[in-house]
Write a protein that binds this DNA or RNA. Structure first.
Lengths: 226, 226
DNA sequence: GCAAAAGTGTTCCAGATACACCCATGT
DNA sequence: ACATGGGTGTATCTGGAACACTTTTGC
C-alpha cells in the first residue's frame, strides 16, 4: 500500500492520527467501543479505534474510514471533539491526534470483528479496561461533551433507531443523565421540540397497552435548542 | 535555528501549525488581530498569527509562542477552537492547523510591530480585509463560539481590565451581543454570579456620580454558569 | 441649578417542576 | 380479572423581562 521510499522534509513533522470515541446505549448502559492492541506500544491494552491520516485525506474522512475499517460501522453521527498533542503521548514518535466522538443506535452495531486479528468489544463507561496512550483522558472529555450537549441539542436522537417509542427515548435520557425523569414532563418537552412525529404505527410488547411509534423528522441533523 | 539536514519518514507526514484568533474590544467594537503576509503564498494578504509546531512543543505552547513572537502579547486567556485540515488548505504542502481563540483587555495591547517586518493591525469583525488560507472560516467559527459562551460562562470577564465598573462590563456585553441591555437586570445578573466583588474604590469621570469599581474574584478562570 | 451617568425594586410572564389516575393489552 | 407499561392535565414555583425615578458629581 505504501511505497518504501522515505519521505523527506526540511523540518521535522509530527504524525497525525484520528481517534474516535464511539458511544452507544447497550444493556441499559452507556457503552463505548474499544479495540485491543496486538502490537507494541501498549500491546494487549485497549484503545480507541483510529489511525494515521493519509496525506490527501480529509480529517473527518480519516476518522470515518478508520472506524469502518476496524469495526464495520459507518453512516453515523460524528463530531470533532478536541486535538491532543502532548509531546510524549506516543513513545514511537510525535503524534498529534485529532479526536472525534460518534453516536450510534444499538441496532446498527456490526458484531463482526475487525478485518485484522484484533479484538473489538463494547465496554460500559464505569468499567473500562486499562487504556493505551492518553485515551482515558479523551474518553472523559467525550463523555463530558456528550452529557453537556443533551441540555441544549437534540443529540440524544442519534442513539435512537429509525422508529422508537417515547418510553425508549426517555430511557436513553435517563441512562445518560443517571436520573429518573417525570414521564409527563418529559413527553411534553420532547414533543414541544417539534423534532419528532408519529408514524401512525404501534409498538406491541408484553401484556400492556401498545405504544405509539415516533420518528425523528430530520434524523441526520442535530438541532441546537433554546 | 534549524539544521539543514532533511528529516525522513516511512510515510508522508503533514505539517502541523497553530493559528490564533485574538479578540479584543476596541473603539466600541469587537476587533481581532491580523498580520500582513510578506511572502508567498497569499503575499500581501492578511492572516491569523500562527506558525509551525516545533517537534517537542505542546500545542498550546506553540499557539502562545507564535502569538508572543508576532505580537508581543502574552499571559492571556486562550482556548482550543477546532482543527482544520482540508487537504488543499495550503498550496505548499499538507497542513493541519490546530486553531485557538484568545481574549484580551484592550489595555494589554502592545502596539509594537512584530519582530520581523510584517505589519500587524486590529480589524473590526465586519470590515475584515482579504484573508489568506481558510482563515475567514476560522474567524467565523471563533466568533460563533465566543458569542455562544457568553450565555453560559463568564468568558466576557476576559475582556475586562483588572478593575472595571459595571457600566464598562455592560458595554462589553452590549457590543458582543449587538443589543442594548437593561441596566438593572444586567447588574442583578452579574452580581448574582458571585464572580465579581467591589474593590471599595471609585471611578470618577465627567460631570456625574462616580462609579463603584469591581474586580473579578478569580480572573484566570472562566466559570461555566447555570 | 443643570447635565450626565450611577445606582436601585417591584410586577409580570413564561417555562420548568411536581404530582395521580385511567387506558389498552396479553395471559 | 389482573398485571403491566402507555398515556394524559393542572397547579405551583422560579428565574427572566419589563419598567422609572433618585443620587452624586463637575461645571
Amino acid at each position: 500500500m505504501y511505497q518504501n521510499a522515505p519521505y523527506t522534509y526540511r523540518h521535522p513533522h509530527p504524525a497525525v492520527t484520528t481517534d474516535v470515541v464511539l458511544f452507544t446505549i447497550r444493556e441499559g448502559e452507556l457503552q463505548l467501543l474499544l479495540i485491543q492492541r496486538a502490537n507494541a506500544p501498549y500491546s494487549g491494552m485497549w484503545a480507541l479505534p483510529g489511525g494515521f491520516l493519509e496525506i490527501n485525506e480529509d480529517l473527518e474522512h480519516c476518522a470515518k474510514r478508520e472506524l469502518e475499517e476496524e469495526t464495520g460501522i459507518s453512516g453515523i453521527y460524528l463530531e470533532q471533539l478536541y486535538t491532543f498533542g502532548r509531546p510524549d503521548r506516543d513513545p514511537r514518535e510525535r503524534v498529534i491526534s485529532v479526536t472525534y466522538y460518534a453516536l450510534t443506535p444499538s441496532d446498527r452495531l456490526t458484531p463482526k470483528a475487525a478485518s485484522d486479528a484484533k479484538a473489538t468489544d463494547w465496554f460500559p463507561l464505569n468499567t473500562l479496561p486499562a487504556l493505551a496512550f492518553d485515551h482515558a483522558e479523551i474518553i472523559a472529555l467525550a463523555q463530558q461533551r456528550l452529557i453537556a450537549k443533551l441540555d441544549y441539542s437534540t443529540i440524544a436522537f442519534q442513539f435512537m433507531e429509525a422508529q422508537f417509542t417515547l418510553s425508549q427515548l426517555q430511557s436513553v435520557y435517563e441512562i445518560l443523565l443517571g436520573t429518573r425523569l417525570d414521564k409527563r414532563n418529559f413527553r411534553k418537552r420532547m414533543l414541544a421540540l417539534g423534532q419528532i412525529e408519529e408514524t401512525g404505527e404501534q409498538h406491541r410488547t408484553g401484556n400492556h397497552r401498545p405504544a405509539r411509534v415516533y420518528r425523528v423528522k430530520n434524523p441526520k441533523r442535530v438541532e441546537i435548542i433554546k
